[in-house]
Nucleic acid binder design. Structure first.
Length: 554
RNA sequence: GGCCCCGUAGCUCAGCUGGAUAGAGCACUCGCCUCCUAAGCGAGGGGCCACAGGUUCGAAUCCUGUCGGGGCCGCCA
């Protein structure tokens, strides 16, 4: 609708130039926005003000000329006004808006989707927690965010892959192996000093017990390094399986799991390093190999190979991202915890160094989650193993509330997650508020069926019977859903969908309280059923993207 | 010391590529179920958009500086 208006304006402008009523010949990009104040119409453009300088005329005068060129009101726009310093406000004909309801009905599950990103391959890498312990609440936010970003991109036509990067090569796996081995010995009566740098959580003891039951004490015989390796591999596998299960329970399934270790096994790390050297991007100093990231905006050069010959995590990451690029993704999105933000410049430097635009890499930084219970902070410390796992939270508050809460804030602002609030079934809880809108429409539909009233199919209801302001306003809001999705996708901001949903639910609840849908007049009932079912469809479609269910009753 | 993020109502936060009178939820006060689900709705108070400059026809939004809060700065991952 916006596009159609834009074209009309552009055509009118061209007409003005051709006719000589405007003469700068400079056509600015026509910006159209939805005014905050409904009295200012449905759409508004500031072209006249933008052109004032080039035309050397007053904005209002330019607006005047432009309006004349636009011609008489028609079945598309109903009214054009010049307002304020030179805004041109358009009010569209109600029928335009009601057409949206038919579109929602006929497109149904695909309403809101678009082809904007068609032909673009995007990868979203998220969670990627070390396989050394269960997912905790912070990972949950990253998971919800990454999945929603991926979903929103898919909905706008991008080809998306969800990937999990498994850090199974660094010395944290070694630490895991050591931790398990020590607990294993302990279970067999040995007194061991359990070091502080080992993983403290109870899950380590549980895993060790599992090994004891399955393998007996045969691992005691094994030479220490071999045993540590064995336990590291075993533990990593088991924990990763658990992580996958936790993600599944959270409604997330990865398309691809990528092992860091595989980059070593197939020589990708070595080859990557060789390529960097060849391109003159790395150099030797103090016995170590460095990436010249300072040449690309980083404030310090970074070590790739330590003087003891071991590669750094950074080296793996360079190789990993080279590998991603070779898979043909045009955009690579990494979802990281905000504590890694210092890592962004060096990773972007890698892209620049390799001849790619740094924009190819998009990093979404997810801020910490502050876990509360009834306003009281819940203590957490990974060190001591006292953390709240994602699984525990999902079990306690449910998947819907959990995912919704994680997405309620933009990812770069800290999030307070109150367990009590998330569980509450009250007006305070925004999850239920939105879901309730859906359930209410379903309830209306059930009543209609009971009364022998058939639900209108697409195009069947006489929508001109929707004569109330609230009805028009609802239709307009529904019409904005596709562009809301597009905005959320373009900016990687799924929270926009949440805010949209809350607004839509609010308008629906208000309407519901004011007007009855099923009334005496059958034609009006039909029209209203079409309207509220369009609301239902959009609520359901949007919730689906966010991984939240749309219950039919509550 | 360097760099990054943030500062909007009592609290938690939106504010789209700069636009017209800055919004929502919670909390607080008052009102609404003989009527499709009250997990709902309506009404009300509440603001120097941290501060000071600058750019612009126009700034919460962009730039600079100051103050305040948080974070990062390893040949760890």
């Amino acid at each position: 609708m916006k596009e159609r208006l834009r074209q009309a304006i552009q055509a009118a402008l061209q007409g003005c130039f051709d006719a000589g009523s405007l003469n700068s010949g400079i056509v600015p990009e026509v910006q159209i926005e939805v005014p905050g104040n409904p009295q200012h119409g449905d759409f508004s453009t500031n072209v006249a003000m933008m052109m004032a300088r080039a035309e050397k005329k007053a904005p209002r005068q330019i607006a005047e000329t432009l309006i004349t060129a636009l011609g008489e009101p028609n079945d598309f726009w109903q009214k054009v006004e010049i307002a304020g310093p030179g805004f041109i406000n358009f009010t569209l004909a109600p029928t335009c808006w009601y057409q949206v309801l038919d579109r929602v009905a006929s497109e149904n599950v695909t309403f809101g989707r678009s082809e904007a990103g068609r032909g673009h391959k995007v990868q979203v890498e998220f969670v990627s927690a070390n396989p050394t312990g269960p997912l905790h609440i912070g990972h949950g936010r990253g998971a919800a965010t990454g999945d929603a970003v991926a979903a929103v991109l898919e909905a706008t036509g991008y080809e998306v892959q969800r990937e999990y990067y498994i850090n199974d090569a660094g010395n944290q796996i070694n630490t895991l192996g050591r931790s398990l081995l020590l607990r294993y010995r302990e279970l067999q009566g040995e007194t061991v000093a359990f070091p502080e740098d080992c993983y403290q959580g109870d899950y380590i003891v549980d895993l060790a017990r599992e090994v004891l039951e399955a393998e007996g004490n045969r691992l005691l015989e094994m030479p220490e390094t071999e045993a540590v390796n064995w336990f590291g591999t075993f533990g990593g596998d088991r924990i990763l399986t658990g992580i996958d299960a936790d993600l599944q329970a959270f409604g997330i399934s990865m398309d691809h799991w990528f092992s860091e270790k595989s980059l070593f096994d197939n020589g990708a790390v070595k080859e990557g390093l060789a390529q960097l050297a060849e391109r003159g991007l790395s150099f030797e100093q103090d016995g170590a190999t460095w990436f010249r990231t300072t040449e690309f905006g980083d404030d310090k050069d970074r070590v790739l190979v330590r003087s003891n010959g071991e590669t750094t995590y950074f080296a793996s990451d360079v190789a990993y991202h080279m590998e991603k690029l070779s898979r043909g993704f045009e955009t690579i999105i990494d979802v990281w915890g905000a504590d890694h933000h210092g890592y962004v410049p060096r990773m972007k430097a890698v892209f620049s160094g390799l001849g790619y635009s740094p924009e190819t890499l998009q990093v979404i930084l997810v801020q910490l989650v502050n876990l509360l219970r009834g306003g009281e902070q819940v203590a957490m410390s990974t060190r001591s193993g006292e953390f709240v796992t994602l699984r525990e939270v999902v079990d306690e508050v449910g998947r819907d509330a959990c995912r919704f809460f994680f997405l309620m804030r933009r990812s770069d602002s800290q999030l307070d997650f109150d367990l009590e609030l998330a569980k509450q079934q009250s007006t305070e809880n925004p999850v239920y508020y939105v879901q309730y809108a859906h359930a209410r429409v379903c309830s209306i539909n059930r009543n209609a069926t009971e009364q022998g009233v058939a639900l209108p199919g697409p195009g069947e209801a006489d929508l001109t019977r929707l004569s109330l302001d609230e009805e028009l306003a609802l239709a307009k809001l529904l019409a904005r859903y596709p562009e809301t999705l597009l905005g959320a996708a373009r900016h990687y901001e799924p929270h926009r969908v949440i805010f949209y949903l809350q607004e839509l639910a609010a308008q629906f609840h208000s309407y519901y309280n004011r007007e009855k849908v099923l009334v005496e007049d059958a034609a009006i009932s039909q029209a209203r059923l079409a309207l509220v079912n369009a609301v239902r469809t959009v609520v359901r479609n949007a919730l689906e993207l966010l991984g939240v269910s749309a219950p039919e009753r509550m």
